[in-house]
Nucleic acid binder design. Sequence first.
RNA 1: GCGCGUGUAGCUCAGUUGGAUAGAGCGGCCGCCUCCUAAGCGGCAGGCCCCCGGUUCGAGUCCGGGCACGCGCGCCA
Length: 714
Amino acid sequence: MILPLHAAIRNRLRAVLDELYGLEPATLPEIAVQSPPNRALGDLGTPLAFELARRLRKAPRSIAAETVAALGPVDGIARAEAAPNGYVNLFLDREAFARRVVHASGAAPPEPAAGSAPDAKVIVEHTAINPNKAAHIGHLRNSALGDTLARTLRFLGAPVEVQNYIDDTGVQVADVVVGFQQLEHASVADVAARAAEPAFDYYCWDLYARVAEWYDADDDRLTMRTRALHEIEGAGNPTAEIGAIVAERIVRCHLATMSRLNVDYDLLCWEGDILRLEFWTRAFEVLKQAGAVHLQASGPQAGCWVMPLTDAGGADPEADGGDGVPEARAKIIVRSNGTVTYVGKDIAYQFWKFGVLDRDFHYRPRDAQGSGRPLWSTTSTPPAAGAAASDGAAASDGAAASDGAAASDGAAASAIPAASGASAESGRPASPPPFGRAAAVYNVIDTRQSYLQQLLKDALAAIDRPGAAERSVHVSYEMVALSHATARMLGYEIDPGDQRPFVEVSGRKGLGVKADDLMDRVTAAARKEVAARHDDLDDAEADRIAAIIAVAAVRYFMIKFSRGKLIVFDIEEALSFEGESGPYLQYAAVRATNILRKLHARDGIDEAALAAALDTLPGTPLDDPDGGELWGLMLEASRLDEVADQAVRALELSVFAKYAFGLARAFHTFYHRCPVLAEERREVRLWRAAGVHYFLRQLTRALDLMGCEVPPRM
RNA sequence: GCGCGUGUAGCUCAGUUGGAUAGAGCGGCCGCCUCCUAAGCGGCAGGCCCCCGGUUCGAGUCCGGGCACGCGCGCCA
């Protein structure tokens, strides 16, 4: 881990600049510590002399030379050099560095580290798929980004709470309910029965598309949607019951899908609970008290409660009201009929996340996740005193209404008993952790919602919570579309009028690649590759390995593009396991594992023996000309914390993916040039083994941050 | 119209808070399995970094102005 070293270097340099030139550390900008383009130039370097040249009226070259001369001994640095062009380059004490990282046992918990992540709790909201149909590849990008962000924040030492927002009372659920009632003429019992069958999410995928077509055929039918929406919000009627069954069962499907990809959560937040517990009522009071909203007296928005807009948002083309004077644009929060808009509900939720709403959900435990992390759900029902938090007790809660029906389904449910999670073992309900009240909130939502996310910040600023507004972060990303080839493969005809080189995923049209279908295909392809290489694997083992590879292939694919980039998804490309791909990284790790396993089998050298042996061996192999390969590998492997920190600061997980790829590539090169087992010189052999060991530990951790595992073979 | 995003090799993309010689994958061509797994490695070819201007010792990166493409801007969610 290299960040502590960066910090030590910066400290020393600041002290030197103060001594030499009387430059107060506080007046200096952050000193950049970077990697020189060529290791012969140094292990680390800094361009500080350029920055100071003007201020000191001195040539960068002289500043660099004087800085180097005055540097003195720095722990971990062997020597410093002033490059002729003005850089200050540093050479690490390789032996000391290598011994330290090798000794830091892999069994010890990762040094929480040194990054710029906050030490107060942060909430990451991601996934938030409408619970009315199967998850598709667009949702996968969201979850992969969100889960990787959460893991990386945890790695940097921040306490993280992951929330998955469930819009169980929205239009999309209402549409499927309308489908059941109008197209299928299904009763509550019929829906419950169908929901208990496998692939309910696939069924709803098609039903939703059928409803959309049905609406298109006759606009009057949209009144059915409006009515269903109201009935669902009202609860205590068959429509609401069907809605609850659909949402609950689809959420289970989504959780199962995400579990395949090693994505998990701490809390499911149901919109229905926000409504029933009247979060909005309280948020509205807070907004009114702060004067953040006002009742519009006249104009087109008369009778509405509105919030003034900052310029960052959208614009209203008709804003000038015909009198030539531009009216202040305002966002309607409460309609003239008194009902709250979507924005209002979102504001209430965001307020709750920051603990500025003195109101809370009730909570109930849900079935454990594949990862073992406890999962909780919001509920509107207070825990009944004395009674276990059974499904029966929660039955009045709309969100839980379908538990009875869902419990009879064993297909997608895991092997974990269907009893309510944490309460099952102890026999009494565990008390929920303190949810909400975060210091920072990261909302992982696609870029089309930037306008609304900006409104949330505005609302926080408007109630005089500038800190919360500042730390209300929209992690935006572009959508995932389909390549023409993939869309055609799915049987869709491309609109000849559409010149775009991609086809937009559309739930309404039923156009998209379902997440589970993708995983199935990638897994099958991986299995074929594994089977071709290892004929001694039994079916179960081959399946297990294929699943591990598929996760890496899909997750890496979703992370490797920077978030502002539209992904044109092509199935052929996603099925490629060569080059810059998840499996490439895993293959490097597997190769490293093989070396260490064989070394152990042949020479009896394990991790502990290796560390012990190195204590009495000279570090000369690190300095050999071909030791440059070894040293370069170890140095690169040590940058994990630096890159994780950078990824979080820039909210750009792709830099993390790129780093992991570069590290794996460095190892593959090392693998070809520097044999370990066949190396005859003992000290060289052991130092190389140590390098392999350290590399494997770091790459494994990097893969873990991306939610990927190292397969036993491949 | 306004806001946000994107524009770098044939294609898809990296390029770290402005820094040393603009990189990778795919595709193309040529090599490497008697050697810890060829899901790998080495090499070759391929560039007005969209355009114009500015700031700076230094600009693919920052600023201004354009152009192109995408997305968003409802008393929908």
